[in-house]
Design a protein around this nucleic acid. Structure first.
Lengths: 241, 241
DNA sequence: TAAATAGTGTCTGTAAGACAGTATACT
DNA sequence: AGTATACTGTCTTACAGACACTATTTA
């Protein structure tokens, strides 16, 4: 192939920047947390020293698809290989990045805290978990505050009628533990009886033996039948209110 | 400002192509239809002569945001100014466009057929409405078959629990007309009594006078209170089945 | 035995489904 | 009057909410 004479020569107009940003959620210490990274303070890059969502430019020789790019960023920051991953949407405009017209493809990921250990490497930027409400009040770099709020809204909305919170727990887990995660994400208590009926009727778990050791009566533990997608319930929680 | 020495000189890596594609839906002749455009046959562009979703490259001096770009494409093809518009998601990868690593930001739009008249201009490509099932069986350019299927799936799914189909009708409209649109999109009949209760309880319409003239008893007509967003119902249709 | 936690049972309320019935127009 | 269409009423069903109740562990 003659590289000096490209087959499609008409693509000389300027192109936007293309990035992928990640909203990584986990539940730790009774709160919903999100991973932020600190932008370098000693460079010419925009928003020096500000907290931002982990992400960066798509590398077209390394990433085959946007999803691959998202998974690469997940691996670089945490060791996690196969969390629950879903696209949140994309944002783009002339003024969201001072370096020029830019786009971002935003994904959010759910994984148990144990699976999302931070990797501390040589060139690792400073990274830390924050309570989502604390993170949301920070002035994040770029439009990342908006992306974060959209991700939290999407997660809270889907938690009302899906089994998504199960992806925030290590397996096997008990129903009381799952209920706790629902309550943490929703920010309110849910009724135990209705909760158990809903989860067991959902048919997305299978029993994995009794778990003793704590205080009180031992609980049945469960595993997910399918870690790749959530189950939809026929109604939202609190639909009668 | 010294333009010969840009402020951010490190952005020399190759950038993906950035496009916006539109899935424009309407209901006409008792079927759900989607707009396709024919790619030029006499150029060096990829997929000559194939049907594709309307769309194209983001113009960074013309479009301020991705949404602006989507609205521009809507205006160029149909003249419609303010339909219901929602982002479907984004796709990107090395092999979806032979011209190189490319991304698309896909939006879908709903509008009454009367509002989405095709504009026939001097440089207008051939464009036509197709039944979505017919369009889905065609071999569309790029990965547009996948985008179309995703848009149809999203629309059908949201129709189960939202008032979205109201955006496919001109105002004022009657409840039987609205029910017909629901049935066209869902591909099945719904119960009249349950349907009417659901819509009226939704509180998203206001009465707009009786409509006579047809056969049989005249019907009440309604207008939407808010044309910018749909209402969510507390359950899906047919949740008991 | 008391406390703590896990799990069940029963009643109520809401909204959908089924379907028969009534209402109002035109021919 | 007959037909076509619009609209209502009543009964049943599914499932969430409230909350009291039982079950099984440890201290």
């Amino acid at each position: 192939m003659n590289t000096s004479q490209p087959k499609y020569p008409l693509l000389t107009f300027p192109r936007p920047l293309v990035t992928v940003d990640m909203v990584m959620f986990t539940v730790l210490g009774g709160t919903l947390q999100v991973l932020l990274v600190k932008r370098p303070a000693d460079t010419d890059e925009p928003f020096p020293g500000k907290w931002a969502l982990p992400g960066g430019f798509v590398k077209i020789d390394e990433d085959d698809t946007l999803l691959d790019c998202a998974l690469r960023k997940l691996r670089e920051k945490t060791g996690v290989a196969a969390p629950y991953l879903e696209q949140l949407g994309s944002w783009g405009g002339a003024r969201r990045d001072p370096r020029g017209w830019s786009t971002t493809h935003c994904f959010y990921a759910l994984a148990p805290a144990q699976a999302m250990q931070l990797r501390s490497g040589a060139n690792a930027a400073e990274a830390a978990w924050f309570d989502v409400d604390v993170a949301s009040r920070k002035r994040l770099a770029f439009d990342h505050g908006e992306l974060l709020d959209a991700a939290v809204a999407r997660l809270r909305s889907k938690v009302e009628y899906t089994s998504l919170p199960a992806f925030l727990l290590e397996e096997p887990f008990t129903l009381p533990a799952l209920q706790h995660v629902y309550e943490v994400v929703l920010g309110r208590d849910v009724d135990k009886s209705a909760f158990r009926k809903r989860m067991l009727d959902g048919g997305f778990m299978e029993e994995a033996g009794m778990v003793a050791g704590g205080l009180g009566r031992p609980a049945m533990s469960y595993r997910l039948r399918d870690r790749s997608q959530a189950v939809l319930f026929p109604r939202t929680f609190n639909s009668t209110k």
